[in-house]
């Protein structure tokens, strides 16, 4: 008899809700969750593979959508609202704690758990001291269930800072960073990043059984207009 033990990919989206995100950028960010749900409604067996979580961060970080099957009848989508500064440190700490709890829970429920996937979307530089967010990031990427981390920057985000967050930065399973190209509208760029994260989620979910890393990013030629992909050594 075959084992029924299924493999789950926990997929996290971290969204900047600092003051600079207000207006159309926030409107687009608020479209991400409904778009993810629509995408899964069109590929509903992926709900057997992917769990989705949304964390937003401003002065602090909050879990807005706890890791769940978004097609579940009881899951509801909270609106994102603006909350002050840009604390990367808070985002990394909350994410680490969530991953730890979620992975433990999934394993206790009898699932095999794939390395978590993270899309981190920011429109500005961190407002907390560098040593603080670097320490928090080190703790996030230094533990056994560290995530595959994909930073995405629009508007005033600092490419050098974001490039240092790509994880793993090297090796066969290295991740990438997505940046808004010069002169683009930042709200449109957030919509484009949503498209990338959804196609990554679908492709990752579909391919999981084939022993891949569990996280697939779109090929460069398939990226939406106005967004460029970078690896960690593109910015020094």
């Amino acid at each position: 008899m075959e084992s029924e033990k299924a493999k789950i990919l926990p997929f996290y989206v971290l969204i900047d809700v600092s003051a600079s995100m207000s207006g159309r950028k926030l409107d687009e960010a608020n479209q991400i969750m409904p778009q993810v749900v629509d995408a899964l409604a069109q590929a509903p067996i992926l709900a057997d593979k992917v769990r989705f979580c949304v964390i937003d961060f401003g002065s602090d970080a909050q879990v807005r959508l706890p890791l769940c099957d978004v097609l579940d009848e009881h899951s509801s989508l909270p609106p994102l609202t603006i909350r002050g500064a840009t604390s990367y440190a808070a985002a990394f700490r909350v994410l680490r704690s969530e991953i730890e709890i979620n992975v433990k829970q999934l394993k206790a429920d009898g699932y095999l758990v794939h390395r978590p996937a993270v899309f981190f979307i920011s429109d500005g530089e961190p407002t907390d001291p560098e040593h603080e967010w670097r320490t928090a990031f080190g703790e996030l990427t230094g533990f056994a269930t560290y995530p595959n981390f994909v930073p995405c920057g629009v508007d005033q985000a600092n490419p050098k800072v974001l490039a240092s967050l790509i994880h793993p930065a090297t090796g066969p399973k290295q991740m990438q960073m997505y940046l808004m190209e010069q002169g683009q509208n930042p709200a449109d760029a957030i919509a484009a990043i949503a498209e990338i994260l959804i196609s990554s989620m679908l492709a990752s979910g579909q391919s999981m059984a084939q022993g891949s890393s569990g996280m697939i990013l779109p090929a460069k030629q398939d990226l939406p207009a106005g967004i460029s992909a970078h690896s960690s050594d593109d910015f020094v």
């Binding site: 409904p34 778009q35 749900v37 629509d38 409604a41 069109q42 590929a43 509903p44 067996i45 097609l71």
Partner: peptide
């Protein structure tokens, strides 16, 4: 779709 967007879907066996 759950967002309210109308769509025409191929009725795949999934």
């Amino acid at each position: 779709l759950p967002s309210g967007r109308p769509t025409r879907s191929l009725r795949e066996v999934q």
